[in-house]
Measured scan of single mutants.
Amino acid sequence: KWTITVQGEEAIKWAIKVAEARNLDYTVHIDGDQAHITIE
């Protein structure tokens, strides 16, 4: 299990796209213009 933090709307969209493309189980916690994405 690991967490990445991305900043900015484009980076958030990209990170989610990558997680979905790899069929990963993930949760997103949005904090202002940052998102913390935890991959199970």
Rank of each mutant, 00 (worst) to 15 (best):
T5N: 04
I39Y: 11
D33K: 07
I39N: 01
E10W: 13
G32W: 05
Q34D: 06
A21L: 13
K17P: 01
E9R: 10
E40N: 14
E9W: 14
D25F: 14
I12T: 03
W14K: 06
I39D: 00
D33S: 09
I30S: 04
N23L: 08
A11F: 10
H36K: 11
D31F: 12
Y26I: 10
I37A: 02
W2D: 00
K13T: 06
E9L: 12
N23E: 08
A15K: 02
T3C: 14
V18G: 04
T5G: 02
L24H: 04
T5M: 08
I4D: 00
A19I: 15
Q7W: 14
A11Y: 08
E9P: 10
I30P: 03
K13M: 10
I37T: 00
V28H: 01
T38K: 04
I16S: 01
K1I: 08
G32S: 04
N23S: 08
I39E: 00
T3S: 07
A11S: 06
H36C: 11
R22T: 14
N23K: 11
E40L: 15
A35Y: 12
A35F: 12
I30M: 12
A15E: 02
G32A: 05
A19L: 15
D31Q: 10
D31P: 01
T3Q: 06
E9A: 13
Q7E: 08
V28A: 03
K17I: 10
T27M: 06
Q7Y: 14
K17W: 13
I12Y: 07
I12H: 01
H29E: 13
D25R: 15
E40W: 15
I16Q: 03
G8T: 05
G8M: 04
G32K: 05
Q7K: 13
T27I: 09
G32I: 04
T27P: 00
A11D: 04
Q7N: 07
W2H: 03
I37W: 01
K17Y: 11
K1Y: 10
V6G: 02
Q34K: 14
W2T: 03
N23P: 06
A35V: 12
I30T: 05
K13H: 06
D33W: 08
K1G: 08
L24G: 04
K13G: 05
H29P: 01
W14R: 07
D33Y: 07
D25T: 15
T38M: 07
E20R: 09
H29M: 12
I12S: 01
W14A: 07
I12Q: 02
H36G: 03
L24A: 06
N23D: 07
L24W: 15
G8Q: 01
E40P: 05
V6M: 05
E20H: 06
I12L: 13
Y26M: 03
E9N: 07
V6N: 00
V28N: 00
I37P: 00
D33R: 06
H29L: 13
I16W: 03
V18D: 08
A21C: 14
V28E: 01
Y26F: 12
T27Y: 09
T3I: 12
V6L: 09
H36P: 01
V6Y: 04
Q34A: 10
D31L: 09
Q7T: 13
A15W: 15
N23H: 12
A19E: 02
I12W: 07
D25P: 15
A21W: 12
A19N: 01
K17Q: 12
Q34M: 14
K17A: 14
H29V: 15
R22Y: 15
L24K: 04
G32V: 04
K1Q: 09
H36I: 15
I30A: 04
K17N: 09
E20T: 11
I4E: 00
N23M: 10
Q7F: 14
I4A: 01
K13D: 04
E10M: 11
E20G: 05
D25Q: 15
I16K: 03
T38S: 06
R22Q: 14
A11V: 05
A21V: 06
I4H: 02
V28P: 00
A35L: 07
E20V: 10
V28D: 00
W14Y: 09
T3D: 02
W14S: 04
W14H: 06
D31K: 08
T38P: 00
K1P: 08
Q34Y: 14
L24V: 05
H36M: 12
K13F: 08
I16G: 01
K1L: 07
H29Q: 12
Y26Q: 00
L24S: 04
L24Y: 11
K13Y: 11
E10T: 10
A21G: 06
H29I: 15
Y26T: 02
H36A: 06
K1N: 07
T5E: 03
W14F: 08
A21Y: 12
T5L: 09
V6E: 01
A21D: 13
D31T: 09
E9S: 12
K17E: 12
Q7A: 08
I12D: 00
G32H: 05
E10D: 11
D25E: 13
V18W: 15
A35G: 05
I12F: 08
A11W: 12
D25M: 14
V18S: 07
A15P: 00
A11M: 12
D33L: 08
A19F: 15
E9D: 10
T3L: 08
H36Q: 10
V18L: 13
G8F: 07
I37G: 00
W14M: 09
K17F: 12
D25K: 15
R22S: 15
T3P: 00
T3Y: 10
I37M: 05
E20P: 01
T38G: 02
H36T: 15
T38D: 03
K17H: 11
D31C: 13
A15S: 03
A21T: 10
K1R: 13
T27Q: 07
E20A: 08
G32M: 04
V6K: 01
A11L: 10
I39A: 02
T27K: 09
K1V: 10
A11I: 05
K17D: 07
Y26G: 01
G32E: 04
V28M: 08
K13A: 12
A15G: 02
A35W: 12
I4S: 00
D25G: 11
E9V: 11
T38N: 04
I37Y: 02
A15C: 11
L24R: 05
D33Q: 09
I30Q: 06
T38R: 06
R22M: 15
Q34T: 14
Q7I: 14
E20K: 11
R22W: 15
I4K: 01
D33E: 09
I4V: 07
K13E: 08
I30R: 12
K13R: 13
A19S: 03
Y26H: 02
K13I: 10
Q34F: 15
I16A: 01
D33V: 07
W2L: 06
E10G: 07
A35S: 03
I30Y: 14
G8W: 07
T27E: 07
W2P: 01
D31N: 09
R22F: 15
K17M: 13
A21K: 07
A15I: 14
W14V: 04
N23R: 10
Q7P: 02
T5F: 09
D33A: 08
A19H: 02
I37E: 00
A21E: 14
R22G: 12
I39W: 10
D25L: 15
A19T: 04
W2G: 01
E10F: 12
A21Q: 11
K17T: 09
K13V: 06
E20W: 09
Q7L: 11
Q34G: 09
W14D: 04
E20Q: 11
T27D: 04
R22H: 15
E10Y: 10
W14T: 04
D33T: 09
A11N: 12
I39M: 08
A35T: 07
R22N: 14
A15H: 05
I4N: 00
R22P: 03
L24D: 03
L24F: 09
I16M: 06
D25V: 15
H29W: 13
A35M: 09
D33H: 08
R22V: 11
H29S: 10
I16L: 09
K1A: 10
Y26A: 02
T5Y: 11
V28F: 05
I16E: 02
E40G: 11
A35N: 03
V18Y: 15
Y26E: 00
W14E: 05
I39K: 00
D25N: 14
A11H: 06
D31E: 12
K13Q: 11
E10N: 09
T38Y: 09
I37D: 01
I37C: 04
I4Q: 02
Q34N: 09
E20S: 07
E40Y: 15
A21S: 12
